[in-house]
Amino acid sequence: MPLIETHELTKRYPGVTALDALSVAVEPGIVGLVGANGAGKSTLLKILLGLLEPTGGSAEVLGMDTRHEGTRIRAAVGYMPEHDCLPPDLTATDFVAHMGRMSGLPAAAARERTADVLRHVGLYEERYRQIGTYSTGMKQRVKLAQALAHDPRVLFLDEPTNGLDPAGREEMLELVRRTGTEFGITVIVSSHLLGEIERVCDFLVAIDAGRLLRAAPLASFTQLTNVLLVEVEEGSDELVAALVAAGLTAHVDGHLVLVAVDASGSAGAAPYDAVRDAVAGMGLGLVRIEQRRHSLEDLFRDAVELPAGTAA
């Protein structure tokens, strides 16, 4: 059974459809939830927490229905919102312990775990200071700590690197990776930055305008395409003409020559030979020849061409 499952999940606001019949299943692991700002990432997380009522469809977390078992889901889930959410006049220790108790920990256990999670996120002596005196990076760590306080089975992190400088982003991503791999907690981490999220997650859910673009293991997003990429120093147009004459499908894209290949591999060598022969025959300077990989950006650029709902 998947850890998280949604069926035709829809959320409409007056004039805006935040989620549009989204069906997706998520297995344990570190899961990236990626999409542009306003794609519906936060809305999805809030519905999964039972904080928002969906307009239509249904969602289950750990086998529990979000509409009717919200409190049980929230006992097992930790949530780090995208926005600031900390009281400036409390110390990190007091606040995280309070939130641990709000999640059902007895007082002594809450204090003990507070010390543990604050150390885990890298807050030491400063944890006895009021949160209002913290830097953005330290506040993000407290936000993560309060989500971890009750040892949740699942962690929802909404844009955890927001507002951080490059070094801070790096550290936060490393924390996310460690939390997911070493603690065995499933982490759903949302981001609008593809390059960032692909470094930590092993499964990716891409949404755009409230609809699912694709949900698949990260590797399959970057698999080989049926395009052979040839770069020559000059004479791209002549090369294309020669390749077309040799019976291949080819065209010029900028300073590159793109050649269609058969990905199955049985006749795979033929285009390579044709390119080699053409380049050699015309005496062109060959810079590179390689089979092109999908990039994550393709996913969004080609969104309209991809069938919606290709859930794994």
Binding site: G70, T71, R74, A75, Y79, P81, C85, S103
Partner: peptide, 13 residues
């Protein structure tokens, strides 16, 4: 300070 979402994401109503 928008602490409310943190309370509402706890196991309470």
């Amino acid at each position: 300070n928008r602490v409310l979402p943190l309370y509402f994401s706890r196991p309470i109503l």
